[in-house]
């Protein structure tokens, strides 16, 4: 198989162009030059974009500069108040939960949180929650349900943490319980996959009325690395596993698992935070408006059937 260039290699000319534009922007006289470079940037991106493989998309989804949950909270939510702990065992920094205002309306926001520096990464456990993270998430969602606040969840995790303590405290039960309870919360729930949708650990905060997905995120039953190791017994098969699993936003839209794809700006979400926040805001706002018009009963019925019809099988007469 031909060796694939990584996304990091592909994006090098883009980084250079963005750097040049940034330098020129200090002087208003450079407007024409800037426009020319911006056009070049756009064309270059179009060229790269058309050739992105699923493995590239995974690299974008895991890009160290990709916006994380707290970045969205900082930009879309006013007066965010983080609430801690599951009232059972502890507080899990791999999941952020709290209340805030979204366009003047109190909402609960829940999301996986990754870190950027080594210290932060360890603190956030690389965005891999323990059971107490899922239990905290549900606690805050139930709080929102009590007061009629819509719920936004931001999904970005390699998966639920595989560790001794996590198993001792019932990782599977915590996830299962969230799936069951989220399916019957009466308030509108919007799930947004912003990066990695790592299996059950992602789904555990991923039950809602609308599932939105950033264009270059992925959502999968298993990581391509894990899949390659189990089914192909080789790490060289990661690219093949990534293709086979059908885990990109386009795949998920075709498989009718997600409702809408949120487009990413030139260069990917990490290249233009402002534009990314604007797009995400637009999609959340539109969907929330639609959901608020429905009665709770209709929303619950709709939510049930949304997941009820997922799956592909043959029905013999």
């Amino acid at each position: 198989m031909e060796e694939e260039k990584t996304f990091f290699e592909l994006e090098k000319p883009l980084i250079k162009l963005r750097e040049e534009i940034r330098k020129l922007e200090t002087d208003p006289k450079n407007k024409e030059k800037i426009n020319k470079l911006k056009k070049e940037l756009k064309n270059k991106w179009k060229e790269i974009e058309s050739k992105l493989t699923p493995l590239h998309i995974i690299q974008i989804a895991r890009h160290p500069q990709r916006p994380y949950t707290l970045d969205y909270i900082d930009n879309l939510i006013e007066d965010f108040m983080e609430l801690h702990g599951d009232r059972r065992f502890g507080d899990d920094p791999a999941i952020v939960a709290g209340l805030g205002f979204y366009h003047g309306q109190t909402v609960a926001v829940i999301g996986h949180q990754k870190g950027r520096t080594t210290k932060e990464k360890l603190f956030r456990n690389f965005g891999m929650p323990h059971p107490e993270g899922y239990r905290k998430a549900l606690r805050i969602m139930k709080l929102a349900n009590k007061f009629g606040f819509p719920i936004l969840t931001f999904i970005d995790t390699p998966g639920a943490y595989p560790g001794i303590g996590a198993e001792e405290r019932g990782q599977a039960e915590a996830i299962a319980y969230n799936l069951r309870e989220m399916s019957r919360l009466e308030v509108p729930i919007i799930n947004i996959i912003i990066g990695e949708g790592g299996s059950g650990g992602a789904l555990a905060i991923g039950i809602g009325d609308r599932i939105l997905m950033l264009q270059y995120s992925f959502y999968s039953v298993i990581s391509p690395e894990g899949c390659a190791a189990i089914l192909w017994k080789s790490q060289e098969a990661v690219s093949l596993a990534a293709k086979s699993l059908r885990l990109t936003s386009k795949d998920l839209y075709e498989l009718k698992v997600i409702d809408e794809i949120i487009p990413e700006p030139v260069g990917g979400a990490h290249a233009d935070y402002e534009k990314t926040f604007k797009n995400v805001d637009k999609y959340i706002r539109k969907n929330l408006e639609e959901l608020k018009k429905m009665s709770p009963q209709d929303r619950l019925k709709y939510r049930y059937h949304k997941f009820r019809r997922m799956g592909v099988y043959i029905e013999r007469k």
């Binding site: 299962a176 059950g200 789904l203 039950i207 039953v221 298993i222 885990l247 498989l255 698992v257 799956g311």
Partner: peptide
């Protein structure tokens, strides 16, 4: 666990069965 060969559709069976159980619970 979930069947890898059906990808994310297998993952969604967790959601589907759990949602059905919430109705049975009620």
């Amino acid at each position: 666990g979930a069947r890898m060969q059906e990808g994310v559709l297998s993952l969604m069976q967790l959601a589907k069965t759990s949602a059905a159980l919430s109705r049975l619970d009620e």
